[in-house]
Design a binder for these strands. Structure first.
Length: 415
RNA sequence: GUGGGCGUAGCUCAGUUGGUUAGAGCACCAGGUUGUGGCCCUGGGGGCCGGGGGUUCGAAUCCCCUCGCUCACCCCA
């Protein structure tokens, strides 16, 4: 038996790391006033086709799509924004007046060739702020992303920033780029020839040397921005400067989802290899309207939990189970003490002291070996001579009365 | 979807030009200490040698297929 390709188990010992990531995500996102939203793992297929874009790789070849028993086409969510926007509209959350801020944590699915930091079931944390086009919000989301990653102890992060314009200027740029690409069609790789026709922006981040060289001379998105997009972008940059956030302009940073407008950004980490993006995001000012809502600007980001865990794992490989070892281990001199043992165990746990015992009827020596391996603070021995409390660290022990055990243990933990 | 590397014990890996019952270290279990851990010593349990097929008197070793892992392309978080 094996977990399906591209999926994996996170076992005790590693889950602690994941819990830490989630805990810090909740804390940081709460500081910025984002509230948690939980949307379904699967949605109607059309939701993703319409939001992500029918000609994107994600929709064309990476979705887990299936028919349910009534013949409905459903898809395991490949990203988080679509579901949040759907929920926002379905529950008419716009009626609450102003800006709505959401964060989410959960699994997503894409049918891709597994690789370091790329699984078919992967986890993301992300935020969406819906209802404002204020560039301060763009800057805030970027700031928040970095806050989150920094709080986890990640260093050597690099922010790339770009603006790809709005519904007014993006088509103009698209045409300009397309014209340029037409002239160089022969020199482009096969993929890019196809992209030039269907989704020209994607040519910009082709990794082949030939294409990179050609694209060097291609028109940049920033040169085509309309006045309002230009002002918006300048403000984003100013606010980032005010916040002391270092970034670099990446005129060729184009994201793989069609709904992005204006600000796009990506955060990469040097220790990740080819899959080096730990977080990415941007504005999606058209998406709500495309789903039938009123024109509503929005901005968000998502970070890859698997990749973060990968980076964190490089520094401090084994944290073992030190942090959550039981406090007490009860050893017995024989089976006849079993009842006393389970009762004491229960009393300890009831008063908030984590405790463990031997279920295998092992020798006292073996029980101590287990207690030592677990890393417990105290061992209690039940036997003919009464009850003995042993401090495993100090190696000291003394006889205690039954009714004094729990308080004794508790007072020792305090000191 | 394409290409490279790799699959031997729970883990990390040996395994000589194909040749006896496939090994080591760590981990695990038991004993040494007839109620007491860590160190040490002794012993022990564990392997469809990823799976299937083929070549051969004989395959962990050679060939083919397949599955998986991994790195890169691609894509993205």
């Amino acid at each position: 038996m094996k977990a399906p390709r591209g999926t994996r188990d996170v076992l005790p010992g590693e889950t602690e790391k994941w819990q830490k990531i989630e805990k810090i995500a909740r804390r940081v996102f709460s500081l910025y006033n984002y509230g948690e939203i939980r949307t379904p793992i699967f949605e109607d297929t059309s939701l993703f086709e319409r939001s992500i874009g029918a000609s994107t790789d994600i929709v064309e070849k990476e979705m887990y799509t299936f028919l349910d028993k009534k013949g409905r086409s459903l898809t395991l969510r490949p990203e988080g924004t679509a579901g949040v926007v759907r929920a926002y509209l379905e529950h008419k959350l716009y009626s609450r007046g102003g800006l709505e801020k959401f964060f989410y944590i959960g699994p997503f699915f894409r049918y891709e060739r597994p690789q370091a930091g790329r699984n078919r079931q992967f986890y993301q944390v992300g935020v969406e702020a819906i209802g404002s086009d204020n560039p301060a919000l763009d800057a805030e989301v970027i700031r928040l992303s970095l806050d989150f990653l920094n709080s986890l102890g990640l260093k050597t992060l690099q922010v790339s920033l770009n603006s790809i314009g709005c519904s007014a200027c993006q088509p103009v740029y698209r045409n300009g780029l397309q014209e340029f690409l037409e002239k160089h069609l022969e020199e482009l790789c096969d993929d890019c020839r196809e992209r030039a026709r269907r989704n020209p922006l994607r040519v910009l981040d082709c990794k082949r040397e030939k294409c990179i060289a050609i694209v060097e001379d291609a028109p940049a998105t920033l040169d085509f921005l309309c006045p309002s997009c230009k002002t918006h972008f300048e403000s984003v940059r100013r606010y980032l400067d005010v916040l002391g956030t270092i970034y670099e302009l990446s005129p060729r940073l184009v994201r793989g989802l069609d709904y992005y407008t204006r600000t796009t950004f990506e955060i990469v980490h040097s220790g990740l290899g080819a899959q080096n993006a730990v977080a990415g995001g941007g504005r999606f000012d058209r998406l709500i309207e495309e789903f039938g809502g009123k024109p509503t600007p929005a901005v968000g980001f998502a970070a890859g939990v698997d990749r973060i865990a990968l980076i964190m794992g490089k520094g401090e490989e084994k944290s073992a189970r030190g942090g959550n070892a039981p406090i007490v281990y009860i050893a017995t001199a024989g089976r006849e003490y079993l009842e006393e043992c389970i009762l004491l165990l229960n009393d300890l746990r009831s008063s908030g002291v984590s405790a463990e015992m031997d279920y295998d009827g092992r020798s006292l020596k073996s029980q101590f070996r287990v207690a030592d391996k677990l890393g417990v603070r105290f061992a209690i021995i039940l036997g003919q001579e009464g009850i003995i409390l042993r401090d495993m660290r100090k190696g000291e022990q003394k006889e205690v009365k039954r009714e004094e055990i729990i308080d004794g243990v508790k007072s020792c933990i305090m000191t």
